[in-house]
Simulated scan of single mutants.
Amino acid sequence: MSESCLIKTQVVTLRVPNELKSRSEQQAKVQGVSLNNLANYLLTTQLSQLETFAGIEQRLRTKNLGDLKQKIASLLDKVPHNPNVPEWDRL
């Protein structure tokens, strides 16, 4: 394997409650991965979600709420009426 294919890593020590560690170890075992792989996956997905939300919030700050509501209403007006929609799925 070439050196350019290797991902550089750092060791990070985290202090977590015993219960969280135990739950994480159990879930890693269920998933068939190491605790390290599970922790990397969870951190990566959660950080991605936080970054996405921050980006959306930043974009929304530059928008006018009235204009956004009007655009949404316009889009909803284009949705065909379906009388067979279950009650739980109605707006």
Rank of each mutant, 00 (worst) to 15 (best):
I7K: 05
I7S: 10
Q10N: 13
V11C: 13
V11Y: 13
V11F: 03
V12L: 15
L14Y: 06
L14V: 08
V16R: 15
V16D: 09
N18A: 14
L20C: 08
K21G: 11
K21T: 09
S22Q: 15
S22I: 13
S24P: 00
S24K: 02
Q26P: 01
V30M: 05
V30L: 00
G32E: 03
G32Q: 03
V33D: 01
V33H: 03
S34F: 00
N36D: 00
N37L: 02
L38R: 02
N40G: 04
Y41D: 06
Y41H: 10
Y41M: 04
Y41S: 10
L42V: 12
L42K: 05
L43C: 05
L43F: 08
L43S: 04
L43G: 05
L43T: 07
T44E: 14
Q46H: 14
Q46P: 03
L47K: 09
L47E: 09
L47C: 03
S48Q: 11
Q49F: 03
Q49D: 13
L50R: 14
L50S: 14
E51F: 05
T52V: 10
T52R: 12
F53T: 07
G55R: 03
Q58R: 14
L60G: 02
R61T: 01
R61H: 09
T62A: 14
T62H: 06
K63C: 08
N64C: 00
L65Q: 10
L65M: 12
G66N: 09
L68P: 03
Q70S: 14
K71Q: 15
K71E: 12
S74F: 04
S74I: 00
L75S: 14
L75E: 15
D77K: 12
D77M: 04
D77W: 04
K78V: 02
H81E: 07
H81V: 08
H81N: 10
N82T: 12
P83D: 09
N84I: 10
N84D: 15
V85F: 04
V85N: 07
W88K: 13
